[in-house]
Amino acid sequence: MSIIEINNLHFSYTKDEEILKGINLIFDEKSTAIIGQNGAGKTTFVKLLKGLLKPTWGDVIIDGKNTKEYTVANLAPTIGLVFQNPNDQIFKNNVLSEVMFGPLNIGMDESKAKDSALKALKMVGLEEKINDNPYDLTLSERKLISIASIVAMNTKIIILDEPTIAQDYISKEKIKDIILKLKSQGKLVITITHDMDFVAETFERTLVFCEGRVLLDGKTDYVFMQDEELKKAHLEPPYAAQLCRKLNSDKIYITVEEFIKANKR
């Protein structure tokens, strides 16, 4: 059974402007990136997956549950969403209780929640800062707290909205690692991002959103070879692919590592 099923999804906030114009998708366990210009409907789409918004037409089925029939709180144990700005969620005065907040809300008992929170904090590399005040930490670390606080809820599906915004190289690598770990634990990771190189290095599948529709859908290397469509969505392929194109090479590699591996004899 597919983890997420989306049938003929339409959505609009107001009558005159439709944001999503008929989306049909199936998500399996492949880690998936969603790319596209601002205003293409990416954030609205993940809010619909999360049940924060309900379809104006069509259905979103999360692990067998139609989001129309469940509240956000009911869906919370199945699907987690990490928001763009960690400052939108952090309110506790120490890291551990911040991360335990979600698990406690979805009905884990105190010891299980603590256990789960500690595991999540270890995964993101903050195990030594569990007693710190989140606002004494850097923005990058707060981002990791917000990721841990969703990971600790142990949901089958985890969505990240722009996890790499304002992050330096090291933090990006950390986030990439976390995504790969989650994937290896059998979770479905879906990420919205503007960073094409990050997509190329991290995700198996890529969706390109453009004006409320899915313009491209497929394996990440396939998607980044569709120059015409990417241009239409105002996106550029990753840097390695740009170099391949410029060199007129027959084979397009989308990451620096692949390029080097393939060309080294």
């Binding site: 809010k47 999360k50 924060l52 956000v72 709180a73 919370a76 144990p77 987690g80 969403l81 928001f83 400052n87 939108d88 969620q89 952090i90 309110f91 506790k92 907040f101 979600g102 809300n105 979805i106 606080s149 969703i150 809820m153």
Partner: peptide, 27 residues
Amino acid sequence: DAQRSRGLETEGKLINRIKAFFPLIGP
């Protein structure tokens, strides 16, 4: 939205609304 995503009930009974005060006002 961010707090509801973490399973916080913000609607319904008065006690829920009171409990939701700090998670909302803090950020």
